[in-house]
Write a protein that binds this DNA or RNA. Structure first.
Lengths: 222, 222
DNA sequence: GAGTGGTCTAGACCACTGT
DNA sequence: CAGTGGTCTAGACCACTCC
């Protein structure tokens, strides 16, 4: 069912922009229940291949906005999945007041201290990614007790703190003196960067910047 | 239903790694049909929050591999969605034999020419992204007739050529002389890059490298 | 073998929305 | 207001996989 509809889209029997038969008609044509048709069409709509509106019917998407699904793994898992040896090193950990931009984006109380961590993840002994993170202790008080010299905040948070949502931004950054020193690369080299923040309820839990060593590629399929 | 299960995960009433009741049990508890429970749990499993195995049952994911869904829009649409004026400029178009790495990745016949395009997309008159693309004319012969000085290959392909899948890689690149010239930036500046290829059946349709002007961020939510 | 999820059927009511 | 998709019920059979 799902596959047959997909075939009709790919073979252009149903062309982009075209209205396709209603669920009831398709159920009759395929000799199956409407629920089956509904599920197939709903899945294809979630994949961006169909556009559905009540009363108006179902159309083949004019511009199939393909959605790439990025899996965001724990860094240790990502490195070990490549068959490399993982090592982790805490660079610094301090309780301090965040700079204004961080405080603003985390909607934190003016006087409150936060946990600021810097750490390096290594693959086969070579710098892989530098993690610069702020943790909101008002939202996650138990983070004050965690031993981030043993386990990375990345891993500890995923295992211990549930979250409802967050946002991610990907960009490129030229290595400054600090990044060059930590990642053992030349100043000015082009580095891949992920900025991420996660929230639960109305509290921002953590903000992190991941700066990857030169040559890093993030890969996914369509 | 879906939301209530989500609540139980977030409030840790069901903890990571824990086995939750079977669909039949939950249907009794919630006083609803098993199909309803099934749909809710299936969706949460697709989001990476649950792990399901026949006979073994359903568990709360230990490491909730959150999946960020990237929407890959047409460049014109992306620029216009930001409220900026879109302009497009074809830099070069030639029919030529691809370099060995391109030919290898596209699994093309040794002697075959391909269409090689270079183009610039502008937002409010400023360089936004440089598009360097190869199109496999064996897979898409009608591309030879298209007028890529009028419509970008990006847009033409999305509208005219269906595809089954592809892969995307994101990385960072230091601007060389060519990129600096085209994107009006300094040599050595750090640029965000997307490499994408798409296929249909067993033929690779196109390979494209998108090099974005400095400061570009790709953004999504979790 | 037994218990789980995966998928389907047949039917129902509802919510939205274009005409 | 009529037609569409959105969601649900109650029941069934099957496929897989752990024991």
């Amino acid at each position: 069912m799902h596959d047959e509809v997909l075939r009709r889209i790919h073979t252009r029997r149903w062309k982009p922009g075209e209205l396709i038969p209603s669920e009831a008609d398709l159920a009759r044509e395929f000799g199956c229940a409407r629920a089956t048709v509904n599920r197939a069409l709903r899945e294809l709509a979630e994949d961006g291949l169909l556009e559905r509106r009540r009363k108006a019917g179902t159309r083949v998407a004019m511009h199939p906005v393909r959605k790439a699904t990025l899996e965001i793994p724990i860094i240790r898992t990502e490195i070990e999945a490549k068959g490399l040896a993982y090592r982790y090193s805490l660079i610094s950990s301090e309780l301090t007041a965040p700079p204004p931009d961080v405080r603003a984006r985390m909607q934190a109380a003016p006087g409150a201290d936060m946990l600021h961590l810097a750490a390096l993840h290594l693959a086969n002994g070579r710098a892989y990614v530098f993690e610069d993170r702020w943790i909101n202790l008002q939202a996650v008080p138990e983070a004050a007790e965690a031993d981030f010299s043993r386990i990375s905040a990345n891993e500890w948070l995923v295992e211990n703190v549930p979250f409802e949502g967050g946002d991610i931004a990907f960009s490129a950054l030229a290595a400054g003196p600090r990044e060059a020193g930590i990642l053992s690369c030349r100043e000015g080299e082009s580095l891949f960067v992920i900025d991420r923040s996660t929230w639960m309820g109305d509290a921002t839990i953590t903000m992190v910047r991941l700066i990857f060593a030169p040559g890093y590629q993030m890969h996914t399929e369509l």
